[in-house]
């Protein structure tokens, strides 16, 4: 059993305690401090702190640590920052809070612990949002990802009328019912940090401590790239090539999954679920780029989304045949409790 799992079962009482605790934390001074505090908080609650997935994705949910690991019955707890790309949201760095590249903070815990709401509220306290001073609300918002064939019920969390997180109990991912159910938390980091730091335009946000010898703002790091990618996404990306790459990724995904499970070289049973899933991620991002280039009509859109969903489904089917994606033996739950 991974250590994180045991920690998760131990953390519930402490999570409940934080629900009553109204102690405030000093406000963070920079974007990175918000991130570091979330990392430290979720690490203290027993999550494995993973690193971003090394591919272009539209949201933290695409990280295999969420999509694939929410399948099957093996317990799982992870948290990570995920750079996310939304080509259509590019505004050349001019819009105060719209970016084609931004950061999401993602927490995924399976099975969802009974006090996930309390744990979540603890994370807000950790970054200086004290419920004794703010109005925190759970407002119905059911989440659905047609590209992943995934949906869940939950809320968007409001802090003083602003959406600061998405809180979802996964019911289905890649067309598979989630048993047990994973709890997923997604924080839009820029927006959240801007609120905590009292910043009106994302580009003026201090990235590191403003008192640092070399103080860097969000603009110092990202204004130029926002301009470059906005131009690229809207006007320059080669659509014919993108279309070709989409087809390639689709074909490659199928090809990888068609290999027999038994690897003659190592003599092991190796299903290439993750490499195939990488191709799904690629196809999804290529679709987003094509969409930003405006070359996909309304009716075609549905068809493309359906094609990506079909790939995701096949990868999930394959992953479920692997050790990480399998259902644990019925007595495994007892083992956790005994430990």
């Amino acid at each position: 059993m991974p250590k994180g799992v045991i920690a998760m079962s131990q953390m519930q009482p402490s999570g409940a305690k934080t629900g009553a605790d109204t102690g405030a934390n000093p406000s963070p001074r920079s974007f990175q401090e918000v991130i570091l505090r979330l990392q430290a908080y979720w690490a203290s609650k027993g999550c494995a702190i993973l690193q971003p997935y090394d591919m272009e994705v539209g949201a933290g949910t695409f990280h295999p640590a969420t999509t694939l690991r929410s399948l099957g019955s093996k317990p799982w707890a992870a948290a990570y920052v995920q750079p996310s790309r939304r080509p259509t949201d590019g505004r050349y760095g001019e819009n105060p809070n719209r970016l084609q590249h931004y950061y999401q903070y993602q927490v995924i815990i399976k099975p969802s612990p009974p006090d996930l709401q309390g744990l979540y509220l603890g994370s807000l306290r950790a970054i200086g949002l004290d419920p004794a001073l703010h109005d925190i609300r759970f407002v119905e918002d059911d989440w659905e990802s047609p590209t992943l064939g995934a949906w869940g019920l939950g809320w968007e969390v409001w802090c003083d009328g602003m959406e600061v997180s998405q809180f979802t109990y996964f019911q289905q991912v890649c067309g598979h019912d989630c048993r047990p159910v994973s709890g997923e938390l997604t924080y839009g980091l820029e927006r959240l940090a801007m609120y905590v730091l009292g910043i009106d335009h994302v580009m003026t946000m201090p990235f590191n401590d403003p008192a640092s010898p070399i103080a860097l703002t969000y603009a110092d790091i990202f204004r130029q790239t926002e301009e470059e990618y906005s131009r690229h996404n809207f006007d320059a990306a080669d659509t014919a090539q993108l279309l070709r790459h989409f087809e390639d990724a689709e074909a490659e995904c199928d090809r990888l999954l068609a290999f027999p499970a038994d690897d003659p070289k190592s003599g092991k049973r190796i299903i290439m679920a993750h490499p195939a899933y990488d191709q799904t991620i690629k196809a999804s991002h290529l679709f987003n780029l094509l969409d930003a280039r405006g070359v996909i009509s309304v009716t075609e859109r549905q068809a493309y989304i359906g094609r990506v969903r079909a790939l995701a489904r096949k990868c999930a089917d394959a992953f479920r045949l692997t050790e990480a994606g399998a259902d644990a033996a019925p007595d495994a739950g007892a083992t956790v409790a005994d430990a």
């Binding site: 099975p111 969802s112 612990p113 009974p114 059911d142 869940g152 019920l153 939950g154 109990y169 019911q171 989630c178 048993r179 047990p180 159910v181 709890g183 739950g333």
Partner: peptide, 17 residues
């Protein structure tokens, strides 16, 4: 619309405590 949560099989609109 109802949902499951955690390890359970019960369905409710959100987790029933």
């Amino acid at each position: 619309k109802s949902m499951r949560w955690g390890n359970g099989s019960l369905r409710w609109v959100r987790p029933l405590h």
